[in-house]
Amino acid sequence: MIAHEPPDKPLIGILWMLATTLCFVLVNIIVHALGEGVPAAQSAFVRFLWGLVFFAPALVRILRRSYPGKVWALFGLRGMFHALAVGLWFFAMARTPIADVTAINYLNPIVVTVGGALLFGEGLAWRRISAVIVALIGAVIILRPGMRAIEPGHVAQLGAALFFGGAYLAAKRLTDFVPASTVVAMMTLVVTAALAPVALWQWQPISLSEVLWLGAVAIFATGGHYCMTRAFAAAPVTVTQPVIFLQLVWAALSGWAFFDERPDPFVLLGGAIIIAAVSYMTWREAQVKKRAITPPAPATKI
Rank of each mutant, 00 (worst) to 15 (best):
194 A>G: 11
147 M>K: 00
110 I>E: 01
67 Y>E: 14
252 A>H: 10
75 F>E: 04
256 W>D: 09
262 R>K: 12
199 A>W: 08
202 Q>I: 00
251 A>L: 02
110 I>Q: 08
134 V>N: 06
81 F>I: 07
204 Q>K: 14
270 G>W: 00
13 G>S: 06
253 L>P: 09
142 I>N: 07
246 L>D: 01
11 L>G: 06
173 R>I: 07
246 L>Y: 02
113 T>K: 03
33 A>D: 14
39 P>D: 06
215 G>I: 10
205 P>W: 05
51 G>T: 08
14 I>T: 13
217 V>M: 05
223 G>L: 01
58 A>N: 04
73 A>L: 15
97 P>G: 03
236 P>M: 00
268 L>S: 10
112 V>F: 06
72 W>V: 11
273 I>D: 04
278 V>A: 11
117 A>R: 06
144 R>D: 11
61 R>A: 15
228 M>T: 07
259 F>P: 09
275 I>G: 11
175 T>F: 02
28 N>F: 09
65 R>I: 01
218 A>V: 07
48 F>N: 12
70 K>Y: 07
96 T>I: 04
52 L>R: 02
86 V>F: 02
23 C>K: 00
165 G>M: 08
40 A>S: 15
17 M>N: 04
52 L>Q: 09
72 W>I: 09
301 K>S: 14
170 A>N: 03
245 F>L: 15
219 I>Y: 12
279 S>K: 00
222 T>E: 06
108 N>P: 03
163 F>L: 06
118 L>D: 06
127 R>Q: 13
101 V>W: 07
24 F>I: 13
184 V>E: 10
151 E>N: 07
98 I>M: 15
160 A>F: 08
10 P>D: 14
298 P>H: 09
